[in-house]
Simulated scan of single mutants.
Amino acid sequence: MKEKKFQRYDADERKSSLIKSTLNCLKLDGYAGLSVRKITREANVSQGMINHHFGSIDSLVINAYDAISNEFFDQTNALIDSHKGSASEKLIIFFRSYISEDNLDPDLMKAWLVFWSLIRNSQDMASTYEYVNEKIETLLNNLLLNISKEEGLDITDTSLAAQSLIALLDGAWVRTCLSEKNLPPENTMKIFMKWLEAYKLGVFS
Rank of each mutant, 00 (worst) to 15 (best):
L139D: 03
G33L: 03
T188A: 02
E137D: 00
K4D: 01
Q7F: 09
K190D: 14
L144V: 11
N24T: 12
S59E: 13
S117D: 10
S122A: 10
V45I: 02
I99Q: 13
S56R: 09
D154R: 09
E101G: 06
M49T: 15
S82W: 12
F54S: 10
T138I: 08
E197T: 07
A32R: 15
K5D: 15
T40V: 07
E42N: 05
K135A: 03
I57W: 00
T188Y: 00
E134C: 00
F204Y: 08
E42G: 06
N187F: 01
D102G: 08
I119T: 01
A32Y: 15
S97C: 13
S164H: 14
S205A: 05
M125L: 04
L18I: 04
A64W: 07
L183I: 12
Q123S: 07
F95Q: 12
F54Q: 14
Q75N: 14
N70K: 02
R175I: 11
R37P: 10
S127I: 10
S46N: 00
A87D: 02
G202S: 02
D12S: 13
S148A: 12
E137N: 03
M189Y: 14
M193Q: 15
V36W: 10
M193F: 08
P185V: 10
K5I: 15
L60T: 04
I92N: 02
E197S: 06
S179I: 04
L144G: 04
L139H: 05
N142Y: 03
N77P: 07
